[in-house]
């Protein structure tokens, strides 16, 4: 082999990069996170749409709800099962999925979906409580 030094260094760098996830996470057992819902949610037992559908499509539903409520002033959502829901993140969604950290963030951090702008406008419940406690006019 000619230029063995350079070739071997190059190959080691290549193999190192190509298998880097294995060195980085090799022995670790990683399991899918479990999002937490409120007692109220457990009592009701279902979301506005079937759970499997929501897991895959909630972002589109939220986007649709945002447009409906903010831009079109439509406040009623009729689900695929024919039930009517109030289009409101704060009052409908957060009633069951009250804790951003334990519900939203767990999966979103795990899957690396970090670019949410829900909370640019909405307050997550903990902040809302804090705000309510400090601001007397609230």
């Amino acid at each position: 082999m000619y230029d063995a030094g350079k070739i071997i260094i190059g190959l080691i760098v290549f193999l190192g990069f190509a298998t880097f996830p294995i060195w980085h996470d090799g022995g670790k057992a990683v399991s899918a996170p479990e999002p937490e819902i409120t007692a109220y949610a457990k009592k009701i037992g279902h979301c506005v749409e079937p759970e499997k559908w929501m897991r895959a499509n909630h972002m589109q539903l939220l986007d649709h709800w945002r447009d409906a409520a903010v831009r079109e002033d439509k406040r009623v959502y009729v689900s695929s099962t024919g039930e009517e829901y109030d289009i409101s993140l704060q009052n409908t969604c957060l009633r069951c999925h009250s804790n951003k950290e334990k519900f939203c963030d767990r999966c979103h951090q795990f899957a690396g979906v970090h670019e949410l702008y829900c909370w640019d406008c909405h307050l997550e419940s903990k902040e809302m409580k804090k705000w309510a406690a400090t601001d007397e006019s609230f």
């Binding site: 996830p21 996470d25 090799g26 670790k28 057992a29 990683v30 999966c107």
Partner: peptide, 12 residues
């Protein structure tokens, strides 16, 4: 989330 749990299981 299931996909990532699967790919991570491949890595480990």
């Amino acid at each position: 989330v299931s996909v990532k749990a699967f790919t991570m299981s491949l890595v480990s």
